[in-house]
Amino acid sequence: MNSKAVRDALAGYLFLLPALIVFGLFIAEPLVNSIILSFHRYDVITPAVFVGLDNFIKFFHDARLLTVYSNTIEFVLILVPLHLIMGLLLALGVTKVVSLKWKYIFRTAFYFPVLVTTAAVAVAWVYMYDFNFGIMNYLLSLFGAAPIPWLNDPHWVYVSVAIFSFWKFVGNPFLYYLVGLQNIPKSLYEAAEIDGANATQSFFRITLPMLTPTIFFVMVVTLIGAIQIFDEPYLITGGGPGDASRTISLYIYEQAFQNHAMGYASTVSLSLFIIILAITIIQFRFSNRWVSYDQE
């Protein structure tokens, strides 16, 4: 190897180093630690005690786990399609807007909530959702509709969280789609138009296939985000009523930081880690069947 090649390789590793350090300190090391901890009983204060498989036995007998996992799946089934489809529709709508001014206004309006502190706006949303004094039920009453128990019904809490999540976070997929749409060469549409394709045809034959890498990316990101969902139920419903909207992340938090059962919390986290890993691998495996990276 000549000295230039060595220098280049060295530079390459040097560039990777900060990311590797961050990854090692904040991801790899905690991961290894939590695997070790899942075989211990640890309350943060007194030293950890090795308990063998106790935490895993408890894991398979924990009735609440079934509830929190199925709650999490319910959130995934609602939130992933919501963001995936609504983000795309909003992005398509905005690209169709001709006036530059309006384009600017819409883009800002859709993305702005992403920039606001989640905890701060969640407080306002809780007030809006209040059964007796909230503005949502007030507006409904103007139309003569019965008040909705936004935060006090095991089914409505999902709607409440979905509305909040849509308002707060749809800006992210919207932005990805917007960029994705702009990367589709205009010449493709021109060629299609000359060949006599109508709008529906060019959407399904050009836009959608060319957008598959973006759709894939948004899907992976929103799916992982939805499985780990914490902020929205924590801030809006507190996991309630009862356990109705308690997700797996909230449950891990409760075990670790309310019950001081760090070992058991690690065991539960490990199960979540394996599930996310499996889903992501499956997504990547099947992605080559429908994701097209052709840019011509």
């Binding site: 006090n152 309630g240 009523p241 009862g242 001081h260």
Partner: peptide, 20 residues
């Protein structure tokens, strides 16, 4: 206390939301 409070709050929210 911390664990007891969490259990109490969770079940109380079920009562006050008329779920149980």
């Amino acid at each position: 206390y911390a664990g007891i409070e969490a259990i109490f709050n969770r079940h109380m929210s079920d009562i006050l939301s008329n779920q149980s």
